[in-house]
Amino acid sequence: MDPYGDTLFNEQAAQVACQEIAALTLRCADDQRKAALLDLAELLEACETTPGSDVLLMGD
């Protein structure tokens, strides 16, 4: 159990998350949130295309 709410994405999880982010971005009306989603997508795409990499989101 992780008391801090950390989240780890490996290459496979990053691929799935990128697909979900694409769908969320289309429905997002707030420019600030959309920009955050696009920043996250950029990190996850780098993870997805780099063998053995992970993205760790720390905290809640």
Rank of each mutant, 00 (worst) to 15 (best):
C18M: 09
A36F: 08
D2I: 07
E45I: 06
L37W: 01
T49H: 11
E20I: 05
D30A: 06
Q32W: 09
L24T: 02
F9P: 04
L44Q: 03
A22P: 03
L44W: 02
A13I: 00
D31H: 12
G52S: 11
A22L: 11
R33E: 12
E45V: 11
Q12G: 01
A46F: 04
M58P: 04
P51I: 04
E11C: 10
C28W: 00
L24G: 02
E42W: 10
M58S: 08
A41V: 05
L26D: 13
T50P: 05
G5N: 08
G5A: 07
V16R: 15
L43N: 03
C47D: 02
N10V: 06
A41Y: 00
L57M: 08
V16T: 14
D39W: 06
E11N: 15
D6C: 03
A17F: 03
Q15A: 14
A46E: 13
D54I: 13
D60G: 06
D30Y: 04
P51N: 09
Q19T: 11
D2E: 14
D31R: 12
G52K: 10
M1R: 15
G59I: 01
T49Y: 05
M58E: 10
M58T: 12
G5K: 03
D6M: 07
L44P: 00
D31V: 10
D60F: 12
L57N: 01
Q12A: 14
L38N: 11
D60L: 12
L38C: 05
L44S: 00
L40G: 03
G52I: 12
L43R: 06
E45S: 10
L26F: 04
A17W: 02
G5V: 06
G52Q: 07
A36I: 08
T49F: 09
I21M: 02
E20P: 01
L43D: 07
Q12E: 15
L8D: 07
S53L: 00
A36C: 10
C28P: 05
A22T: 13
M1T: 14
I21Q: 05
V55C: 02
E45A: 07
D2R: 10
D31A: 15
L40A: 06
C28F: 00
G59Y: 02
R33I: 04
Q32M: 11
D30R: 08
